[in-house]
C-alpha cells in the first residue's frame, strides 16, 4: 500500500478506503487462528439475529424452542469471545493478564467443556 499523498488528507479519504485500510491491517496483524474465530463469531451473530427476526415475524409459539435456539447462539458467542481473549498473543503480553500462567490447550479444553454443558441444556430445552 502506497503512503497517502499530502493532498489526500483525512477529509479526502472516503469511508470505503477506511474500511479497506482497517480490513487490510486486520489481515496483516491478526493471527490466522483468531481470524477463524472471528469468522465463526460473525456466523453465530448472524444466526442469532435471523432467529430473532423469525420469532418476531411468525410469533413466539414454540417459545421454549425459540429460547433454546437463540440462547445457544448467545451462549456460544460469549464462550467463544472468552476463548479468543485467552488465545490472543497481545493479551498474553500484558503483565496484568491473569491468564498468563495458563496454557492455550487448557483454554480450549475449558471452552469445549463449557460448550458441552451449554448444549446439554439447549438440547433438553429445545423440545
Amino acid at each position: 500500500m502506497s503512503s497517502p499523498s499530502p493532498l489526500h488528507t483525512q477529509t479526502q479519504s472516503s469511508s470505503g478506503s477506511i474500511v479497506h485500510d482497517v480490513f487490510h491491517a486486520y489481515r496483516l496483524n491478526v493471527p490466522a487462528s483468531l481470524q477463524v474465530i472471528d469468522a465463526f463469531l460473525c456466523y453465530v451473530l448472524a444466526t442469532g439475529i435471523i432467529q430473532l427476526i423469525y420469532a418476531m415475524s411468525v410469533g413466539s409459539f414454540p417459545f421454549n424452542s425459540f429460547l433454546a435456539g437463540f440462547l445457544s447462539c448467545v451462549g456460544v458467542f460469549v464462550l467463544t469471545v472468552s476463548l479468543r481473549m485467552q488465545l490472543s498473543e497481545r493479551n498474553l503480553k500484558d503483565p496484568n493478564n491473569r491468564w498468563q500462567g495458563l496454557s492455550k490447550k487448557r483454554a480450549v479444553a475449558d471452552w469445549l467443556f463449557c460448550n458441552f454443558i451449554l448444549h446439554m441444556a439447549v438440547l433438553n430445552f429445545l423440545g
Partner: peptide
C-alpha cells in the same frame, strides 16, 4: 413442530460449528 425448525437448525449448527472450530484451533 414445523414452526420450530429454524431453532432446531440453529442449535445443531452451533453444536457442529463448535466442534469444527475446535478441530481447526487444535
Amino acid at each position: 413442530i414445523g414452526m420450530a425448525s429454524p431453532y432446531y437448525a440453529s442449535s445443531f449448527s452451533m453444536l457442529i460449528g463448535v466442534f469444527l472450530l475446535g478441530l481447526v484451533i487444535l
